[in-house]
């Protein structure tokens, strides 16, 4: 807590933390948006969300090992994860679409364990990062440093989000996805193959996570066990923003990123994970308090 004084004395440091936080938070929005998509359309809470992010990171890492700039890993990771998500859907998810929500939590939790342990076996437990070598930008007479890779990553995240939004709004598949989300039975009667819509939704979500992971490995680190933190972040963002609320997802994502930066500066970096998971508990309790006040438990 001694660092609180430091923040007070050095306002540019506050700004630095805020900028870092917002840039990181922009990346959090991608898996959160994917989670909201799957949750809204298929009524499934995908606990393996963060593990898709982790896998995307490793794809970009291996792209960079091949001598190609890791930024090209973004489309590659998206493509690989799209196929991977489709396979996971066919193997497991299609069996649990009609079942209780807890079954989906438990089953995807199992998938999450499989993926993290597979990654541990295949890639080792080492902490990895892919150097983008894009230099840094200095602001205010170099009191504030922003890695250019973060700016590029945020720009890419933004472009992805806009493309996704337009895709869901205007493409045929996007419209089918939205129709299925609103009323699967009616969609089926109208001739929409809901099982295909589900498969594409889940694959699309995996692709979004994969792209996010390819960005994460360049601005930060990845390791086999990093997935759960991203799942929890995505879940928090969706809980705060609500389903189908893009502006809310962005705001909550940026807010979470900033909150984490300040928390890890004030409490020490070793408490960052503890902060994220404790924040989850607090947010859920807060939400239930709000619902109880309105006595909405029949919903």
């Amino acid at each position: 807590m001694d660092n609180l004084l430091v923040l007070w004395q050095a306002p540019t440091l506050t700004l630095q933390l805020l900028i870092d936080g917002v840039l990181v938070g922009a990346i959090y929005c991608l898996p959160a948006y994917g989670m909201a998509l799957v949750w809204g359309v298929m009524k499934i809470i995908n606990v393996a969300q963060g593990d898709f992010v982790m896998l995307g990171g490793y794809v970009a890492l291996y792209v960079s090992y091949a001598g190609i700039h890791p930024m090209f890993g973004v489309p590659v990771a998206a493509a690989v994860l799209f196929v991977f998500g489709w396979i996971v859907y066919q193997l497991v998810i299609r069996h649990i679409v009609d079942r209780d929500l807890f079954v989906s939590v438990l089953a995807t939790f199992g998938i999450s364990i499989v993926l993290q342990q597979l990654a541990n076996q295949l890639f080792s437990a080492n902490v990895e990062t892919a150097e983008a070598n894009l230099g840094s930008t200095y602001l205010f007479g170099s009191t504030i440093v922003v890695g250019n890779i973060k700016l590029v990553a945020v720009a890419i995240a933004l472009v992805l989000a806009v493309v996704l939004f337009l895709f869901l709004k205007h493409s045929r598949l996007g419209q089918a996805i939205r129709a299925t989300a609103q009323n699967p039975r009616a969609a089926r009667i109208l001739g929409i193959e809901t099982s295909q819509v589900f498969a594409m939704t889940y694959a699309l979500n995996a692709a979004i996570c994969g792209a996010a992971g390819a960005l994460v490995v360049q601005i930060w680190i990845i390791h086999p066990y990093i997935g759960l933190t991203y799942t929890i972040r995505a879940f928090m963002i969706v809980v705060v923003a609500g389903l189908g609320n893009i502006a809310g997802v962005v705001l909550a994502g940026l807010g979470l990123g900033a909150a984490e930066q300040f928390a890890s500066f004030l409490l020490g970096a070793e408490y960052q994970a503890a902060f994220v998971f404790s924040l989850l508990v607090v947010i859920l309790l807060w939400r239930s308090q709000m619902l109880a006040r309105r006595r909405l438990y029949l919903k």
Binding site: V47, F102, F109, L228, I232, V239, F277, L280, L284, R287
Partner: peptide, 14 residues
């Protein structure tokens, strides 16, 4: 339901 499940997941890790 699912909120309880995820919350306790967070609790254990925290």
């Amino acid at each position: 339901g699912q909120y309880f499940a995820i919350c306790t997941l967070g609790l254990g890790v925290a």
